[in-house]
Amino acid sequence: MAESSAKRLKTNPISIGTHNGHFHADEALAVYMLRMLPAYESSQLIRTRDPARLETCHTVVDVGGEYNPATNRYDHHQRTFNTTFPNRPTKLSSAGLVYMHFGKAIIAQRLGVSEDAEEVNIIFEKVYENFIEPVDANDNGISVYDPQGIANAGLEKRFRDGAFSLGAMVSRLNPNWNDPAPSDPEEAQQVEDEKFLVASARMGEEFTRDLDYYTKAWLPARDIVNKAYALRLEHDPKGRVMVFDGLSVPWKDHLYTLEEKSKGGEGVLYVLYPEKPDPGAKWRIQAVPVSKDSFESRKPLPEAWRGIRDDKLDELTGISGCVFVHAAGFIGGNKTFEGAKAMALKALEL
């Protein structure tokens, strides 16, 4: 890792260079992330492919054919470039490069702590894996699944998902081929630059929202999940039911991490939590997914309960206070904690 950003930024005023023409999600995000730091906050943006102009820039991203953090050059298009984020397989884009070198400073600034703080490193890795890495993969043409493996399995997409990504969103912000453009080159470049700034702000908004989620919601939930996991044997001898006494928190990542560390037992199958932090709130029973992003549950609620509500569900389960069970079996509800727990324990038997 390069030295801290504060030690490298001594040129004033700061200018950031990137390429003009069709813009992409990675450099739009790279520019935004740099501008989150005080040293770059008032930086000038220069979009050009002219080597002479790029040479005048303090920092250059996604153009220039050079990766050298000592001189603030962050391009990834070189034939020999194969840099990845620590312990991750995906080749970096300009977004990944900027994040790898400046991400900890951005996170530390957000948390109001030093870059060496434990929580900074935890969020640094989490935000990369969940937000930055998909941007890197998209820009470098790397598929989520091995294309040859997909072909060998004979799998076909059920629908087109090409528009459902941040990369596609940024692509749509580029000028269309037949949009009217000023005849003056400088005016035309200004129009294009304004569209780029819209794209950069949109990518930055999503990045900031993701960062705030991990710093303000996900990380504070860790201790709560740890406590609930430690008490799970109080609700089921095999530890298959986990209960949150207060309002539900983001628990999936933390649960999988705890289970991986413990490496034993059947694993948690159902999570119980109140809908609201009120004394009389209804309770939910949620089946644990097989993985964080999966729609498949480890043990869905019984098929016979699915799509049934209220009194009919009471009669079917033999448990009073039932509210519903979703048709897909991944979640249900009861008017009380005792009722939700009874549903979980009975579901374990079926």
Results as ranks from 00 to 15, higher is better:
residue 42 S to D: 10
residue 84 T to R: 13
residue 143 S to E: 05
residue 32 Y to M: 00
residue 248 S to I: 15
residue 281 A to Y: 08
residue 160 R to Q: 11
residue 182 P to Q: 04
residue 102 F to Y: 01
residue 218 W to Y: 14
residue 213 Y to E: 10
residue 159 F to P: 08
residue 173 L to Y: 05
residue 282 K to S: 15
residue 259 E to R: 00
residue 158 R to Y: 00
residue 72 N to H: 05
residue 178 N to M: 08
residue 233 L to H: 06
residue 168 A to M: 10
residue 24 H to W: 02
residue 136 D to P: 05
residue 186 E to D: 08
residue 173 L to S: 11
residue 247 L to R: 15
residue 160 R to S: 07
residue 105 A to K: 06
residue 300 P to Q: 00
residue 134 P to Y: 02
residue 154 G to I: 05
residue 210 D to T: 15
residue 102 F to H: 01
residue 133 E to N: 01
residue 87 N to K: 07
residue 17 G to W: 06
residue 83 T to W: 07
residue 44 Q to G: 02
residue 228 A to T: 13
residue 128 Y to G: 02
residue 288 V to N: 10
residue 129 E to R: 11
residue 179 D to S: 07
residue 164 F to W: 00
residue 313 L to P: 00
residue 63 V to H: 01
residue 345 L to V: 06
residue 291 S to C: 03
residue 283 W to A: 14
residue 45 L to N: 02
residue 121 N to W: 07
residue 34 L to D: 10
residue 196 F to M: 11
residue 94 S to H: 12
residue 212 D to M: 14
residue 333 G to H: 05
residue 247 L to C: 15
residue 218 W to C: 07
residue 91 K to T: 10
residue 80 T to G: 11
residue 117 A to F: 12
residue 198 V to E: 06
residue 344 A to R: 04
residue 75 D to I: 00
residue 306 R to D: 02
residue 339 G to M: 08
residue 296 E to K: 11
residue 37 L to Y: 01
residue 55 E to I: 11
residue 79 R to N: 15
residue 189 Q to E: 09
residue 270 Y to N: 04
residue 171 S to L: 03
residue 259 E to T: 12
residue 63 V to I: 14
residue 81 F to Q: 04
residue 297 S to G: 12
residue 98 V to R: 00
residue 266 E to R: 01
residue 225 V to M: 12
residue 213 Y to N: 09
residue 281 A to N: 14
residue 23 F to I: 01
residue 18 T to D: 00
residue 228 A to P: 09
residue 62 D to M: 04
residue 264 G to D: 06
residue 163 A to P: 13
residue 158 R to D: 03
residue 217 A to V: 15
residue 214 Y to C: 07
residue 127 V to N: 02
residue 259 E to W: 04
residue 60 V to S: 06
residue 317 T to D: 06
residue 169 M to D: 05
residue 42 S to I: 14
residue 273 Y to M: 15
residue 173 L to F: 01
residue 181 A to E: 13
residue 126 K to V: 14
residue 212 D to H: 12
residue 238 K to R: 13
residue 40 Y to M: 09
residue 126 K to Q: 08
residue 62 D to I: 12
residue 28 A to Y: 09
residue 282 K to R: 15
residue 68 N to L: 12
residue 16 I to S: 05
residue 234 E to F: 03
residue 321 G to N: 08
residue 225 V to C: 00
residue 120 V to P: 06
residue 11 T to S: 03
residue 211 L to I: 13
residue 212 D to S: 04
residue 227 K to D: 15
residue 318 G to M: 03
residue 142 I to V: 09
residue 72 N to C: 02
residue 110 R to C: 12
residue 323 V to F: 12
residue 100 M to P: 08
residue 20 N to M: 05
residue 271 V to C: 03
residue 193 D to A: 00
residue 72 N to I: 03
residue 334 N to Q: 09
residue 200 S to D: 02
residue 158 R to I: 10
residue 336 T to S: 05
residue 211 L to V: 00
residue 163 A to W: 04
residue 305 W to Y: 12
residue 299 K to Q: 01
residue 264 G to P: 11
residue 214 Y to L: 06
residue 75 D to L: 14
residue 78 Q to E: 14
residue 29 L to S: 01
residue 280 G to N: 15
